[in-house]
Every structure is written in structure tokens, then in C-alpha cells.
């Protein structure tokens, strides 16, 4: 198997300088990942003597069995799963309903509201996070699942995406159903929702990924270690870097904590690529 030359010159000869550059970039990309994997497979004692020992056997799975034996990681994993799934389902439900409303039904103020939503796309998190934190303090929502889930439901991106999708869907099917006297909700539920599955998948996977990886909000809202999500938990365990549990253990935790999201990525890769393509064009 050989790499072909860049597309602009398809058919032209290989350019060794460019290939070398690509190889170098790939190495820079892969090396930190391999380094982490190797470190996670070494005993803490070996690493304490020298991390160079990571390049040669003996390797062990001891760090991983330590994680499985007793670790807060499972609690964090559970919290991340609950929060990410809840936000994803919530965003899908709210965005589909609102997307259908904006795309298909005429009501007073529709155009203005949609422009306000577009404006909402431009609001970065840090310009609302302080006031939001105050508000959640007043409502006693910190260190609860609701506190972690609710802010994720507010981003207008999903509504925007679903509105665009429904607008591009042909009306014929709905018209037939309308003549048969079906209610609007029934038309939405039976006809448009099933048609929108590809868009739901893309929106769902992006929402899941970004919620799973969110750091700032859980950092300030979930201050109780029982409520840590995986990102905050992993951050807290590296604050006392390599001192308490040992380097190998810490790196095994990194591998273990990235496994779920990498699995999700591999399974849903298709939808991620589709989503990015839609954003680009």
C-alpha cells in the first residue's frame, strides 16, 4: 500500500519531501498516545527508577487491575454517562420540536425569534457562566444531576440544525396526512421524526461528545467529589501529579477514561464525518 500524492496533483509522481513531512506529523501525533499506553503498562516501581524503562519489557496489567479493584473512576464514569445521555436526549427532544415549529408552522414572531436564536449561537459560555452559577446557587442546583444537565439544553445549535433539516424535507407526505385529518403532533411524530434520523444521529453524537468532554461547568458546579464527572475527576487526580497513586496508575487511568469516548467515536464515526461535512458547506 502506498500513499498517493496530494489530490491537486493526482497522477503526478510522489513527492518525497512532502511524504517525509507527513510521516513526521503522524509520528508527532502518535508518539504521545503510544507513550501514555507504554507508561500505563509498567509497574509504578519500574517507573520510579526511570521512565525510560517504558521502552522495554517487562509489561504488566497491574495498573488496570488496580483501577478495576477500587477506584472512584467508576463513579465518575457513571456520572458522565448519566449527564451526557440526559443532555443528549433533552437536546434531541427540544430541538426536534422547536425545529419542526420553526420550519413548518406559522406563528406570530417566528422570524424575530429565529434571529434571536441565531444571535444565541454567538454567545460564548464564559459570558453567561458567572450569572448562571449565581442563579444555580440560588436554586440549590449545584452538586446535583439537574445542575449538570440543564445548562447543556440551552445551546441553540440543535434547533438551528433541525430547522434547516426539516425545511429541506419535502412536504408531500405531510400534506397527504393532513388531508387524512392527522393532528400536527401526529404528523411530526409519525412522519417527520423518522425522516430526520440521520440529522438526529449527527446532533446526538456531537451533543454527547461535547457534554462528555465539558470541563468548565462541571468544575464549578460539581464541587463534591461524588458528583465529579470523568473530566473533573481525572483533573483532580492529576493535581497531585504522580505522587499518591504512581505514574503508571495515573496513565492507566488516562487510557481507561478515554476508552469509552474512543469507542463511541469509532462506532459513530460516520455521523461525525457527515456532521462536519454539513458544517463546512
Amino acid at each position: 500500500m502506498t500513499l498517493r500524492a496530494p489530490s491537486a496533483g493526482a497522477g503526478a509522481g510522489r513527492n518525497w519531501a512532502l511524504l517525509a513531512l507527513l510521516a513526521l506529523a503522524s509520528l508527532a501525533m502518535a508518539a504521545p498516545l503510544l507513550w501514555t499506553l507504554l507508561l500505563s503498562l509498567k509497574s509504578n516501581g519500574d517507573l520510579l527508577r526511570s521512565t525510560r524503562s517504558a521502552f522495554s519489557p517487562p509489561y504488566t496489567l497491574q495498573n488496570y487491575s488496580d483501577i478495576l479493584g477500587h477506584s472512584a473512576v467508576f463513579g465518575w464514569l457513571l456520572n458522565s454517562t448519566i449527564v451526557s445521555l440526559a443532555v443528549t436526549l433533552g437536546v434531541l427532544a427540544l430541538s426536534s420540536l422547536a425545529g419542526y415549529g420553526f420550519a413548518r408552522l406559522r406563528f406570530p414572531g417566528r422570524a424575530v425569534l429565529f434571529i434571536v436564536l441565531l444571535f444565541g449561537l454567538a454567545i460564548p459560555e464564559q459570558s453567561v457562566i458567572i450569572a448562571r452559577h449565581q442563579m444555580f446557587s440560588a436554586l440549590n442546583l449545584h452538586n446535583t444531576y439537574r445542575g449538570l444537565i440543564l445548562p447543556g439544553l440551552a445551546a441553540p445549535f440543535g434547533v438551528f440544525l433541525m430547522t434547516q433539516y426539516f425545511r429541506a424535507t419535502p412536504r408531500e407526505l405531510e400534506e397527504a396526512a393532513t388531508l387524512d385529518g392527522a393532528s400536527r403532533f401526529k404528523i411530526f411524530w409519525r412522519i417527520l421524526l423518522p425522516l430526520s434520523l440521520p440529522a438526529q444521529a449527527t446532533l446526538g453524537i456531537f451533543t454527547f461528545l461535547s457534554t462528555w468532554n465539558d470541563y468548565w461547568w462541571p468544575l464549578i458546579s460539581a464541587t463534591d467529589s461524588d458528583m465529579y464527572t470523568l473530566t473533573v475527576g481525572v483533573a483532580s487526580s492529576q493535581m497531585n501529579f504522580a505522587q499518591t497513586n504512581g505514574l503508571g496508575y495515573l496513565m492507566a487511568q488516562a487510557v481507561f477514561a478515554s476508552a469509552p469516548i474512543l469507542i463511541v467515536y469509532v462506532i459513530f464515526q460516520r455521523y461525525i464525518v457527515a456532521g462536519v461535512s454539513r458544517a463546512a458547506t
Binding site: L94, S95, L97, A98, G101, F107, V128, A131, R184
Partner: peptide, 22 residues
């Protein structure tokens, strides 16, 4: 118009409370 508002209302409430108000 009524059902349109009903469809968009759940999201708009969340949007107003958690994004516009803060």
C-alpha cells in the same frame, strides 16, 4: 399559530432562562 407556539415553547423557555437571562 397555537400549535407552532406549543412546539417551540419548551426550547424557548430553556433558552430564555439559561442563556438570555444569564
Amino acid at each position: 399559530a397555537r400549535s407552532g407556539l406549543l412546539f417551540v415553547a419548551p426550547y424557548l423557555i430553556v433558552f430564555a432562562v439559561l442563556l438570555i437571562y444569564p
